[in-house]
Amino acid sequence: MIRRLLLPAAAAELVIAALLGLAGLAGLAFVALYAFDGGDTQLLGVALALALGLIGAALLVASRTAFKQRQVEEDRPEFAVPGEASRREDAIEDATETARAGLDGVTRRRLLGAAGAAAGLGLGAAALTPVASLGPRVGKLLGESPWHEGTALVEENGLPLRAGELEVGSFITAFAEGADKRDLAAAVIVVRVEESELELPPERRDWAPLGLLAFSKICTHAQCAISLFRYPSFPERSPGPALVCPCHYSTFDVLTGGNRVFGPAVRSLPQLPLRIDAGRLVAASELSGPVGASWGGVREA
């Protein structure tokens, strides 16, 4: 379309000048808006966009009208032309010879080459080795947990979580007392179900006093915070109680102790055994499994 602008040169130049002039005004408008209008994002954006766009338009019009358009032809460099590559043999030979000539006088090439390789390997190994000092500690770092027998559960405000606070069908986020709330292992999600609904394995029978269950809040798939609790008011015609992760929708059945029932997670959600101590919720033992996403050091149940 711009190509077909049939403006005579003189008129085109006036158009370009007008566009540039308006662009200048738009730029000044930006300054004025900034200084006097308190910087409304929308108006500032439009002003700058106009300034830039008008200059762009001026340039495009100029490139098609006021300035001479020519189509020219040029040869490509030799190396880039098919078939010419063979003519480059001289240049390649020349460079190769120069490189080889530099090695003249070196007699034990193989020996020196091998020795150089050995030095390189040694130095490379030395350079990479400090990474391994993270090694034995990585498992410890990734496996740390503030939960022990007797660790109290506290709410986000630091106050102890009382057993009576949750009714059946409720959930709350809690933390290990004294731990950094940003510690992945510190956060648990506590839910309450009817005691009669529980289907925990025998060794976990006493992990859920009054139907209160606690699980790590961090999804075992990719470490998002599990923030959905699904609790049916009519279990016969609805999906059962479960914790769901909002990132990739891994779903964990709370009644069976955190087994995965849907989604890409493989490992079940670590459960924290609970007991009630003078009305407050307290950990009865450590978490049933490692917190967070799986990696090489994680043992699956």
């Binding site: 606070e165 949750l166 009714e167 069908g169 409720s170 699904r230 609790y231 008011s233 609805s238 999906p239």
Partner: peptide
Amino acid sequence: PYVMPRFSEAQ
């Protein structure tokens, strides 16, 4: 309602 959890005054 339905599968939404519920929250008492205590919470």
